[in-house]
Measured scan of single mutants.
Amino acid sequence: NNDALSPAIRRLLAEHNLDASAIKGTGVGGRLTREDVEKHLAKA
């Protein structure tokens, strides 16, 4: 659900052409954090 993404996370996802649903969020309520996105990028 993109409504739960902060603007910074949306921008980071867009810059790397990532789909938020492909990344498991570890923030409050399962929200994506910058660390989640960076860890996903490091794996790729």
Rank of each mutant, 00 (worst) to 15 (best):
V28R: 09
T26D: 03
I23H: 01
N1L: 09
I9A: 05
I23V: 09
L41K: 01
L32M: 08
L18Y: 03
G30I: 02
L32R: 03
R11F: 05
D3G: 10
D3M: 05
A20K: 07
I9D: 09
E38A: 09
N17T: 05
G27P: 01
E35L: 10
D19T: 09
G30A: 05
G29R: 07
N17P: 01
V28T: 12
D36N: 03
L12Q: 14
D36F: 01
H16Q: 04
T26H: 05
N1E: 14
A22E: 14
G27R: 02
N17A: 08
I23K: 00
T26W: 01
V28N: 10
A42G: 10
R10Q: 12
G30T: 02
R34G: 07
V28S: 11
L5F: 05
L13D: 02
G27T: 03
R11H: 15
S21I: 08
G25D: 02
G29D: 14
E38T: 09
A4P: 13
V28C: 00
A42Y: 05
L12N: 08
G25E: 02
E38Y: 11
L12V: 11
L13V: 04
K24S: 10
L41A: 06
L18P: 00
A4I: 14
G27S: 03
T33G: 02
G30H: 02
A14D: 15
G29E: 10
A14M: 07
A14F: 06
K43F: 07
L12I: 15
K39M: 11
L12F: 03
A22D: 14
N17H: 11
K43W: 05
A4D: 15
R31L: 12
A20D: 05
A42Q: 12
L18H: 02
A20G: 08
V28F: 06
D3F: 00
L13F: 02
E15D: 11
A44Q: 14
S21M: 08
V28K: 10
A42M: 09
D3V: 06
N17S: 11
S21R: 10
L13T: 01
N1Q: 13
L18E: 04
L18D: 02
E38M: 14
G25N: 03
A4Y: 15
D3A: 08
I9H: 05
N2E: 15
L13E: 02
S6G: 08
N2M: 11
E15L: 07
N1C: 08
R10F: 01
G30L: 00
E15G: 04
I23F: 00
H16F: 05
A42W: 03
S6W: 08
K24Y: 03
A44R: 11
R31T: 15
G25Q: 03
K24D: 07
S6A: 10
N1V: 13
S21K: 11
E38I: 15
R31D: 07
L41P: 01
N17C: 06
G29V: 04
L41G: 02
R11K: 13
G30E: 05
L13K: 00
D36W: 01
N1H: 11
T26E: 03
S21Q: 08
S21W: 04
D3P: 12
K39N: 13
E38G: 06
G25V: 04
R10E: 15
G29S: 08
A14Q: 15
R34Q: 15
L18Q: 04
V28E: 14
R11Q: 15
G27N: 03
P7W: 00
A42H: 10
V28M: 10
L32W: 04
V37Y: 03
L18R: 01
V37H: 00
E38W: 08
K43T: 13
A4T: 14
R31Y: 07
A8K: 08
P7Q: 12
S6F: 05
A42I: 12
A42R: 12
R31V: 14
K24H: 10
L5E: 08
R10L: 04
R11E: 15
N2K: 13
S21F: 05
R34V: 15
T33F: 00
S21E: 10
R34T: 13
G30V: 02
I23T: 02
E15T: 06
A8P: 06
G30F: 00
N17M: 10
L41M: 08
N17L: 08
T33Q: 06
T33N: 04
G30D: 06
A20E: 11
R11C: 06
A44H: 13
G30S: 05
N17R: 06
T33I: 06
R11A: 13
L5K: 03
T33W: 00
I23N: 01
R11M: 07
R31H: 10
V37M: 04
